[in-house]
């Protein structure tokens, strides 16, 4: 079962101070897939992502990268293989898009060699791949929500890692910008990266994920291809909500239609 390669959590128990969120959970990040983790609020989906990104240390159990505990690597070495965009990163005051993206190169730099041509190339590539190349000299503070999120994704992209972990990358964006960011993630996956994202919207998750993970109360209820696992029973078990599953006429992926509650149906 355990493969030597890849990123996985082994029997991890995760807690914030005294509050335990996840107990003895194991999860293998499928390679070269676009994994989306969904689940009700406080089910531990962001917590699991943080553990995989080694920004939250497990109370017990371990996260493995290529079969070795992730804590045994030098932190910068991990950052060259795995990038994580938190839910609310802070843009430093008066920083330009180019400088922000450039900071993603930190794990590739040393004290004396702080900027090489490889850094410049990676930044240019990331700027173009995310469509913010025309915004490079603008201040991050003056961008729209969607542009800003693309600039942040460009920053983690400049890290040039095989794994890309995104914690609710669409939160606070309007619907057009949400799809713009998800399209971008999808392109990055198509270009060969292993992407793991936490999302709130089930229909977006079903449309974009190649591997869907549904969590509840710190455990994984189901995982697999969206069209195989997305059932009204699963949604009811996870969210306690009655729904119908229909086929998304645009993408052919499963789509969750919540049932009318009785009081409303009577009107």
């Amino acid at each position: 079962m355990t493969t030597a390669a890849g990123l996985s959590a082994r029997d991890v128990t995760l807690a914030y101070d005294a509050r335990t969120v996840i107990e003895e959970l194991s999860f293998d990040v499928p390679d070269a897939e676009f994994t989306v983790i969904v689940g009700p609020n406080a089910c531990g989906k962001s917590t699991l992502l943080k553990a995989l990104a080694r920004t939250l240390k497990p109370v017990s159990g371990e996260v493995l990268l290529d079969g070795r505990a992730i804590g045994e690597y030098r932190s910068k070495a991990v950052a060259r293989r795995l990038a994580m965009l938190p839910q609310s990163p802070i843009a430093p005051e008066a920083i330009s898009v180019r400088d922000l993206v450039g900071r993603g190169r930190y794990p590739h730099q040393t004290l004396l060699r702080q900027w090489t041509s490889a850094d410049g190339d990676a930044v240019e590539h990331a700027l173009e791949a995310t469509g913010v190349a025309e915004l490079t000299d603008r201040h991050v503070a003056e961008l729209s929500g969607g542009q800003r999120q693309r600039a942040w994704i460009a920053m983690v992209l400049a890290q040039q890692t095989e794994y890309l972990l995104l914690d609710e990358p669409t939160t606070f964006l309007d619907i057009a910008h949400q799809y713009e960011v998800l399209d971008l993630c999808s392109r990055l996956h198509a270009a060969g990266r292993t992407v793991v994202a936490v999302l709130h919207d089930l229909n977006q998750a079903a449309r974009y994920a190649t591997h869907l993970v549904c969590m509840k109360d710190g455990a994984i209820l189901a995982q697999g291809r969206p069209d195989e696992i997305m059932t009204s029973e699963l949604i009811h078990a996870a969210f306690g909500m009655d729904c119908r599953i229909i086929t998304d006429p645009e993408s052919g992926s499963p789509m969750v239609i919540p049932r009318h509650t009785r009081e409303l149906a009577r009107r």
Partner: peptide, 23 residues
């Protein structure tokens, strides 16, 4: 001066700094 690079990274929030390997 040696610290200032890591400080720039830490300026983007604890979680991102940890993720980038700046502790």
């Amino acid at each position: 001066l040696a610290l200032s690079r890591r400080l720039q990274i830490a300026d983007m929030g604890d979680e991102l700094a940890d993720a980038l390997g700046a502790g």
